[in-house]
Computed example of a mutant assay.
Amino acid sequence: MAFDDENAVFRVVRNDEDMYSIWPLHRPVPAGWSDAGFTGTKAACLAHVEQIWTDMRPLSLRRAMDGEKAANAGGNGAAR
């Protein structure tokens, strides 16, 4: 299997939730994922993912939490 081959060429893929993974270059990108524009060895792709994917939370959760923060910040100011 390509995932076990340290010399195989991989691509970095990303889904709609802004989550990253690697996928063998010779296989079609799976449904729900898109090419993130980086290819290389398994080690290079994993290093790239580690560098760019700094917030592991899914995009929908980050948006919900940001909305919650904004709502809470708006309620903290007292009217004068």
Rank of each mutant, 00 (worst) to 15 (best):
A2S: 09
G37L: 01
Y20K: 00
G40R: 09
N76I: 08
H26L: 14
Q51L: 04
R11T: 11
K69L: 09
R80L: 08
N76Y: 05
G67Q: 08
Q51M: 08
R57V: 08
R11D: 08
K69W: 05
L61T: 06
F10C: 05
G75S: 08
I22V: 10
W53D: 03
R63K: 13
A2F: 07
I22G: 00
D4L: 11
L61D: 05
D18R: 15
A71R: 14
A31S: 12
F10M: 03
R11S: 10
R63L: 04
E50A: 11
K69F: 05
F10H: 01
A73I: 05
A44V: 11
W23V: 04
A79G: 05
D66H: 12
H26D: 14
R14H: 03
D66T: 12
E17C: 13
R57M: 06
E50K: 15
N7F: 11
M1S: 13
S34M: 12
F10L: 05
F38S: 04
E17Y: 12
L46A: 00
L59E: 05
A70G: 02
V29G: 01
L46K: 09
R57C: 03
R57F: 03
M1P: 09
I52L: 03
A36G: 01
V13Q: 04
E68H: 07
M56W: 15
N72A: 13
Y20V: 01
T39C: 12
H26K: 15
R63Y: 03
K69V: 08
P24Y: 06
V13E: 02
V49A: 03
M65Y: 13
P30G: 11
C45F: 14
G77Y: 04
R80F: 07
N7A: 12
A31Y: 10
S60C: 08
N15L: 02
S60H: 09
L25I: 14
K69A: 04
F10Q: 02
G67D: 06
R57Y: 07
R80A: 09
A47S: 13
D55S: 10
A43R: 10
F38G: 06
R63W: 02
C45N: 09
S21C: 13
L46W: 09
D4G: 08
V49K: 00
D55M: 06
D4F: 07
R27K: 15
A64D: 07
S60Y: 08
P58R: 02
G74R: 04
M56L: 14
G77P: 01
L25C: 13
M19C: 15
A36N: 01
E50C: 02
I22N: 00
V49S: 01
R80P: 05
M65L: 14
G37A: 00
V13Y: 03
T54W: 00
F3K: 11
L61R: 11
A73V: 05
T41H: 01
N7Y: 09
A78V: 13
G40L: 12
A78F: 09
E17H: 14
R57S: 03
A64Q: 14
A73D: 12
M19Y: 10
P28C: 12
R11F: 05
P30F: 15
G67F: 02
T41F: 10
P28R: 11
I22M: 02
Y20H: 01
T54R: 04
D55K: 12
D4M: 09
